[in-house]
Design a protein around this nucleic acid. Structure first.
Lengths: 288, 288
DNA sequence: CACGTGATGGAATGTTTTTTCCATTTCTTT
DNA sequence: AAAGAAATGGAAAAAACATTCCATCACGTG
């Protein structure tokens, strides 16, 4: 978990040699420590200015620690950041490698633990990239809606059906747009102003979901999109977008992050509506 | 709390104008959205490469949005980062103070992070307690079955419906016992010897699921139970039991571990059946 | 107090990166 | 299918930037 980056190592070295440094370079050292996180985006000149020092002093500093110049030292910080900030790629790759690696006889359990590992990475990413204000906006939107329509097809249907189930524990009227009997159109007919729709869809985007969203908008309802990107056909037109990036292995996409997000959404909503445990989960004859 | 940086505003503008953009610039837009966090440390060339586009296209993109060039646009992201990175130090403290000062003022996003945390812990436990031989047995049972019946009600229905969906990508005949129209009995009628049933249920156990399992056993079908304990009414009688202990946060039961397990199960099955990409997810008109 | 060592900052240099320009291609429209 | 508009990519020009050089300055030491 706590991996020691090259930047950490360097900072340690700087601390060790600090006392042996000339006055200005000590200033540089202090500055680096203080502004560790922003060095990667600053120019030599900015840093020099920040230290009240000439640019060449900063370069000399870098060279004193074995780098060819400032640029090379800066790269250390940049790399440390990008490695930590882009677990996105590694997550995508990990989940992909779950199936990809076919050394003939991978036992089932091995596949399972790798898949679980990858899912955990997915949750990390979800937590890291969750947009605070959007999430709040999503909760508010649902809290203010009288009727909530939920739509998701095929891969996303399970999610939609869960949301619909969970929302039944509130006082909202909930409508799961299932398309049962080919009645998409009819199930959407009565959506109206002030209502909310939760639409869940990922590339290549189910056309039923897109259709549902268009209808919702024509009827002036708010749309919460749970999707992969702001720029996809769903995200582009929604009132609020919550992004989930599920890694995919071959054409097999994870679903745990999405599920987790939806549950979190529901919990936050229940909290806002001040539902008690009993209300959210009445334990009666029909519980499961 | 809802701090809207210039970068947010820009991203919004990009999303709005997205459709009007030429192909390459759309690619750039997508890239920016995807790599929002690392744009500030990247060179035009890197970004251009990442988009599979010439550097000048990136510059044109920036200009299209009113900047003099890429550099000016990059500054927006850089500033957004530096503003947000500075107070990041006090993050831990802020969290703590939020928790301390009355839980009825928790911001929604805080609830979400905690929920995600709990879900991650759940996955850890899942990985730790996954029984190797049972998992293998579960995969084998499904691999050998001709017909697979899936049943789960209320909270577990979403899971059941996902499994049913996923299994449709194999050559098995899959039956989701939905109870639609009150036809539990009828949907189970044709289950028989050699068939498999996947039953998902947790305390306090849906009676529909228990009923389905009894029917399956009377008809000499194998039952895979996904449940909390070997000793519950479901686990006690099943042929194979896969245990999931969902962590709970805010007195609310998670579902991510269960989802994850089921996906892992499917991946392992697909692997065993040597399904190819095309077979698992044919990308056609109806995909989502 | 004079000398030497090392630090410092201004300016020149060299390198990298961005931006502009323009020829060519691609797409649209009629 | 032709004409026009827009998009694209190569390459040159421009700008930004880091680095080096060197003259000057400060400080400690004999």
């Amino acid at each position: 978990m706590a991996k020691r980056s090259d930047a950490d190592v360097l900072m340690q070295r700087i601390a060790d040699e600090f006392e042996a440094l000339p006055r200005q370079l000590q200033g540089v050292a202090r500055y680096l420590e203080e502004h560790r996180t922003s060095i990667m985006v600053q120019r030599v000149t900015e840093i020099a200015e920040g230290c009240g020092v000439h640019a060449s002093a900063v370069v000399r500093f870098a060279q004193r620690f074995g780098y060819s110049g400032f640029t090379e030292m800066q790269a250390v910080f940049r790399d440390a950041y990008t490695e930590q900030a882009a677990p996105a790629r590694s997550y995508q790759q990990r989940i992909r490698s779950v199936i990809k690696g076919r050394p003939d006889k991978l036992p089932a359990v091995e596949i399972a633990s790798r898949f679980i590992e990858a899912s955990k990475a997915g949750l990390d990413e979800l937590a890291a990239e969750l947009d605070e204000s959007r999430f709040q906006a999503a909760v508010d939107m649902l809290a203010n809606a009288e009727n909530i329509y939920v739509v998701g097809v095929r891969r996303s249907f399970a999610i939609a059906s869960y949301i619909a189930y969970a929302l039944q524990h509130t006082t909202k009227r909930v409508h799961l747009v299932s398309g049962l009997g080919g009645m998409y159109r009819e199930q959407l007919r009565s959506i109206g102003k002030g209502d909310a729709m939760i639409a869940i869809s990922f590339p290549p985007y189910g056309k039923e979901t897109l259709y549902a969203m268009r209808v919702a908008q024509q009827h002036k309802a708010h749309v919460l999109a749970i999707t992969e990107s702001d720029l996809g056909p769903l995200g582009r037109h929604a009132s609020v977008v919550l992004k989930v990036k599920e890694g995919s292995a071959f054409a097999f996409r994870g679903l745990t992050s999405t599920m987790c997000l939806c549950q979190a959404l529901f919990v936050a909503l229940a909290y806002k509506l001040e539902l008690t445990v009993e209300e959210t989960l009445p334990r009666g004859e029909y519980d499961d």
